[in-house]
């Protein structure tokens, strides 16, 4: 029997929830509006901002100021690259831990998690020096390696919790039907594992896209992703609200959309399966 809720109560909740929701979202909405304004209008009062003319100029100027799409592409390469390499390493590991758990599996998982707890500042010095000596500073390959390592524990953990949910009996059933190991993996396990792999991938792309310690410290001009490119607005020349807004909108829009799709997986991934 569903709880009976009076309509007035529901209306009140609706008003309260929408008000808070819009307030929390407001900074994003505001830069979206500012990104379609001229620089001179963007610094005006809120009323002036709303009533002034709309323009796409800022988006063009962002590209003109420095090669925006180079940095955008760097972000794509870094987040996709580190995620795919991470998956390639993590899938076999998570797979065997989920289906052939040994005595040490739990310890192993906990140990992997512990590597995620290491603060980046704690290992900044050696990583920086290694990168300098190997000529990896400001290269995409170096950053892909770091981002892979940083997020590998989360990938293994997420995959493990998904694989764990695939029932073992289904394999026995397939085997009774005379399926070979190869077709077992290909036709039974893989289709069941793909949704989990896809969500892991999505969340990991988001995390890598927004990573803002290593990307800021280890890049300069050529390998800098959007996190570092946006940081260059901290010492701006002249009016820059519209340009900063346009650059920000383009930097967060793809990830915001992916994030909205992955909200359920987010909980599982970021709590290491502790909350589902």
């Amino acid at each position: 029997m569903p709880r009976r809720i009076s309509n007035s109560q529901k209306t009140m909740t609706t008003v309260a929830a929408w008000t808070i929701g819009v307030l929390i979202f407001f900074p994003i909405l505001w830069i979206f509006i500012l990104s379609f304004k001229a620089e001179g209008d963007a610094i005006g009062t809120p009323l002036h901002v709303i009533s002034s003319a709309w323009t796409f100029d800022a988006y063009g100027e962002v590209q003109g100021r420095s090669d925006y799409f180079k940095h955008f592409w760097n972000s794509v390469v870094l987040s996709l690259g580190s995620t795919l390499i991470g998956l390639a390493i993590a899938i076999p590991a998570a797979w065997s831990m989920a289906f052939v758990p040994g005595k040490r599996t739990k310890d192993l998982l906990m140990w992997m998690l512990s590597t995620k707890m290491m603060p980046a500042a704690g290992v900044l010095v050696p990583i920086y020096l290694i990168f300098r000596d190997l000529g990896l500073l400001d290269t995409r390959i170096g950053l892909v390696a770091i981002l892979t390592l940083v997020n590998l524990p989360i990938i293994v953990w997420m995959l493990y919790t998904y694989f764990k949910e695939i029932p073992g009996e289904i394999l026995e059933a397939a085997r009774m039907d005379g399926a070979s190991l190869r077709s077992e993996i290909l036709y039974v396990l893989t289709p069941m594992a793909i949704p989990g792999i896809a969500s892991t991938m999505l969340l990991n792309i988001i995390l890598a896209w927004n990573e803002a310690f290593w990307t800021l410290r280890l890049t300069a001009a050529s390998a800098a992703p959007l996190t570092a490119f946006i940081a260059s607005y901290s010492s701006p020349e002249g009016l820059f609200y519209a340009k900063l807004s346009a650059a920000s909108v383009m930097a967060i829009a793809p990830i915001l959309i992916m994030g909205w799709f992955s909200q359920k997986q987010l909980v599982r991934g970021l709590t290491f399966g502790a909350v589902k």
């Binding site: 927004n210 946006i230 909205w260």
Partner: peptide, 23 residues
């Protein structure tokens, strides 16, 4: 409303900081 509330989590730290600081 869930989507609206969740959104800031996906904003990269440098964007969030500069937008708050300036705008």
């Amino acid at each position: 409303v869930r989507l609206l509330v969740l959104a800031p989590f996906f904003v990269m730290p440098t964007v969030s900081a500069l937008v708050w600081q300036n705008m």
